[in-house]
Amino acid sequence: MKRTLLIITILIFSSSLLFAQEVKKDSLNKSLLKEENATQFKVMPFFSYNRNLKFMFGAIPMLMYKLDKQDSISPKSLSGAAGVYTTNGSHFVSVFNRLFLKEDKWRIIFFGLTGNHTSQFFMDDFQNGSFYDYNSNTTIVTAGIKRRLLNNIFFGLNYTYSHYYTVYEDEVLPNETTSTNALEYNISIDTRNDVYYPNKGNQVRVKWVNLPEWFGNDFTSNKIKTEYNQYFSAREGEDVFAARYAGNFGLGDIVFEQQEVLGGKDIRGYSEGKYRGDGLIAFQGEYRYNFHPKMGLVGFAGLATIYGSDNPDFDWNIYPGGGIGYRYRAFKDVKFNIGLDAAVGKDDWGIYFRIGEAF
């Protein structure tokens, strides 16, 4: 009898332990799921400097969230806004959205910007040429949708409306009002293991940007944009080496505001706005060193060239650029960084504030 009671007691005690472990495990899973589905709101300061816009100050509120909390495949969506003022008198307000739906079968983007942009451009008019200021009241609205067709292949359609009223210093060019309606057809192959911070896989994109006359454009033009990004895991998955090719080719009447300008995403280290043309080709590499769960450093270098410049001496030259940057993880459960890059180019330099990685 005593032996039977002992066995029953052991069984009850063991069952209690197992039940407690299951409850704890279930509770942990629910907690992790709740954390993954949690909406996170952050307000990030914006500050930067370049030789054109000078000091830039602002704020960027951002929201990261799940559109469908039962969808465990789609990445979190991102929405935000930005307000920026620069000490050369420019100011901008923008909104941005990046949405992932239906187990990542659909991807939607929306971007809107309005502001007053005071900048400069280089004109080879007398002797060695000169910089001239221009002021442009700018409004840009972009909306796009992508559909997963097969495995990692996406097809998309974007629409962009742009309106510029540009006044040039000393009337070196006629003041002009330009409005364009662009349709972009794009196809991409995306094997990245993360849309915000990949350390494996690649992304190939081909875009055809068409500005047809029947869509209310005064000038007909086309752009072909191609890019290839490759990501390699380093230091046992802690770091990333990323490589990028980009080629943007303008065809037809490319208006001044839509020319390619060296500096920014595809070659950092150019901020004067000196080198611009109808097309650009660039190669770059970047090492992303994560020395802390929330912080990291990057080192990058690249080469670029342009063609179709209003200054023919600039065409097909090699323009190097390189520098270093700092990254800070903005959200708790998603590897999404903001940061600052400092870069040097040919007789130029710039400091860039980043929302996400350069590519």
Score class of each variant (00 low, 15 high):
R3T: 08
R3V: 06
L5V: 07
I12W: 13
F13D: 14
S14C: 13
D26N: 14
F41C: 02
F41S: 00
K42A: 14
P45L: 02
F46K: 03
A59I: 15
I60D: 11
K69H: 08
S74P: 08
K76S: 07
L78N: 08
S79H: 11
V95R: 09
N97Q: 11
R98W: 14
L99S: 06
W106H: 10
I108V: 06
G112P: 08
G112M: 09
H117W: 11
F131G: 05
N135I: 15
S136C: 05
A143H: 06
G144V: 01
R148H: 14
R148D: 07
N151S: 14
N152A: 11
G156A: 03
N158K: 08
Y161R: 09
H163Y: 13
Y165Q: 15
E169I: 03
L173D: 09
D194S: 14
Y197K: 08
V206M: 13
K207Y: 01
G216F: 01
S221H: 10
I224Y: 09
K225Y: 08
T226K: 02
F241S: 04
A242D: 05
A243H: 05
A246I: 02
N248G: 04
F249N: 14
I254A: 02
V255D: 08
E257I: 06
G263M: 04
K265T: 12
I267H: 10
S271V: 00
G273A: 11
Y275D: 00
R276V: 03
L280C: 04
Q284H: 09
F291Y: 10
P293C: 00
L297I: 06
G299E: 10
A304I: 02
G308A: 10
D310G: 13
N311R: 11
W316N: 14
W316H: 12
P320H: 06
I324G: 11
Y326H: 06
Y326N: 06
A330M: 10
K335D: 05
L340C: 05
F353Q: 02
G356W: 00
